[in-house]
Write a protein that binds this DNA or RNA. Structure first.
Lengths: 354, 354
DNA sequence: CGATCTATTCAAAGCGCTTTGGAGGAGCGC
DNA sequence: GCGCTCCTCCAAAGCGCTTTGAATAGATCG
């Protein structure tokens, strides 16, 4: 069933039927109703490809899915996607995702853009320095970056959370609790959020005249395994940290395992703060010791990104170009004052820097 | 840059250029090279919408993403998607995902199908009894079901793993080790894989004359929290199970937490087997006690589904219509002989049935 | 009453691609 | 030289939709 048939069926021209369907004013209300009736009766659906061809609008937004990274990226991607999806659904917009091997995304973007399958593009998993942003800028499509590069001030639309502030606040809390040796289990170093969290933590330490030593930092894929290994390495140090910041709840999972295995008690012997992207299946409040977190729903971020992207594709103006959400610092039982009596290592010991 | 311009540029007709690009034989190899050169130089990409309209082929496969279920579904979906994506990428096929609120998927499928944006559809997260399959059958598009309904023999193409066999084998192993009180932490009861695993476990127990009691079964979303709670409930029983089967590694995570909290030792005091979908960020071998698992990569399944779907969309015949993969039972340290001396509860105690 | 609006409707021209049905020329056998 | 087949290439007809530019009819007006 296509427009032509439908029009013939109604003894109308395609023009009129098309207009009736798309809400143009120059069609009699009675005929519009007649058309709507017929649509319902026949189950007619406009062919999207034809619509695209005719209008140039695709009715979908594109995103590039990093495939097979194996670093726990997928976990966040799924949740982000879920948020995107919710908004996309209510706006009757489809998501077309172009899977692409890492390093090949620029091509994937070009393909998506040139093929005219999407009205707007979304970039996620931004690297600290990311050439894909330039690719995006060179395309003539609206786009939105989830995250932002590090260094210069971004001159493109983005939506990001205040990773720097989050980890600054988290580190401050620990410092206020008397911790001086604080370690960081971070995501891969070239990811922008990882760089920013590192930075924020460094800032807080600096306020106490402490330097963030690289020995106290791990940059890895955010898997349970890496969380475990990193924590073990920290705990094995002569001057082991009394607190650890984790860039992901999955890392915290591994950290918890390591700490438990050592017979230490989280919140008493060692403090733990993790960034929580709010996964429904793994909640920080359900850890054996409920986890203090910096919290920001990545799903909500996805929803917001979709909202803006759809708006922009529709030509709506006046949307904020750059947006940074603060993450909440939610204190639970995994943080406590620095242990006064030594349990392991040498106990309290200020590491003044500079 | 479009075909017409490109053709003019080359002093060729659109026909010839189109044919050169699509690998038709009736074009001189020399001119084909010339065309290819020009494409490279100009960065020409065929407009997908136009191609779709002309050929009726969309060059993409559609899947419906269940949105906002909050039951840990997303986790598996992401990994599955990742597998789909890998194959889709190499075949230059896009994935269009239609997010849809649960219960609304039938409409989403119809929308996808009628709009002509996809060549084939994939259904995942099959329920034990699933009306969406009928929807799919009524559409005139190739489709593939990941999973299969329970009850009658499926009369549609699917790809599934042998959930029944996997949990039968797993339960058998436990039975051989002397366990008689075995519990099940399952996914939501209306999901087909959950039903099948329940069934398989029941079969194994039946071989030993044991009935699978509902008190030993939990059907919930596969979150860490539910794993923990369920396990706690089991451990609190007078006749607590000596072994637990988990339908997901995330459930096992919660189970581990509960067991540890009780001061029990996995593999000695209580045995644990989980189904492992092979998530890169959470590996059973890295649990504090490495987990015995029934293993089948959901990513590989996604890849296979994509392969078949793409083949079918291309009209390739002779592909197997129904496919069931066996899951490997990989024994690690979380399973051991049933404890002989009682630690908790009443120790060994046969619960003969019937 | 002829002229000017206004409210509806329509025919036809694309959108950028594929594909059908030739056309022109080279090569061949007779 | 003629008819034939091959090999290349082309013009033009769609695919199903939107949209431009008119046409028609009824209403309004001087």
């Amino acid at each position: 069933m296509n427009l032509k048939e439908l029009a013939r069926l109604l003894n109308l021209s395609q023009t009129t039927v098309s207009r009736a369907l798309n809400g143009y004013p120059e069609v009699n209300e009675a005929t519009r109703q007649r058309v709507l009736q017929a649509v319902k009766a026949t189950g007619y659906r406009p062919n999207k490809a034809a619509q695209r061809l005719a209008t140039g609008k695709a009715g979908s937004i594109g995103l590039v899915m990093p495939t097979g990274t194996g670093d726990g990226t997928d976990l966040h991607f799924a949740e982000f996607l879920s948020g995107l999806g919710e908004i996309a659904e209510t706006n009757d917009v489809q998501l077309v995702i172009d899977p692409s091997r890492v390093g090949n995304e620029a091509m994937a973007f070009q393909r998506l853009a040139a093929s005219g399958t999407v009205d707007a593009l979304c970039l996620s998993y931004v690297r600290a320095s990311d050439p894909r942003i330039d690719t995006l800028k060179s395309l003539r499509l609206p786009f939105l970056v989830h995250g932002r590069h590090v260094g210069s001030a971004p001159d493109y639309p983005f939506m990001d959370i205040d990773n720097c502030g989050a980890f600054r606040d988290a580190a401050r809390l620990l410092l206020q609790l008397g911790h001086r040796r604080i370690a960081l289990l971070n995501g891969l170093a070239d990811l922008s959020f990882a760089a920013r969290r590192h930075e924020g933590m460094g800032e807080a330490l600096a306020e106490y005249g402490i330097a963030l030593e690289e020995g106290f930092c791990q940059h890895t894929g955010m898997t349970e395994e890496n969380g475990y290994r990193g924590t073990m390495r920290f705990l094995d140090m002569d001057e082991a940290p009394t607190a650890i910041l984790c860039s992901s709840i999955v890392l915290a999972l591994g950290a918890t395992r390591a700490i438990n295995q050592r017979g230490l008690k989280i919140g008493r012997d060692i403090s733990l703060i993790a960034h929580d992207d709010v996964f429904p299946y793994l909640k920080p409040e359900n850890f054996s010791t409920p986890l203090t977190t910096t919290t920001s729903s990545i799903r909500a971020a996805g929803a917001r990104v979709a909202e803006r992207l759809i708006g922009e594709a529709a030509g709506r103006k006046g949307l904020p170009q750059q947006e940074i959400w603060k993450a909440d610092l939610i204190v639970r039982a995994s943080t406590g004052p620095v242990p006064t009596r030594k349990r392991r290592g040498t106990g309290r010991h200020d590491e003044a820097a500079e």
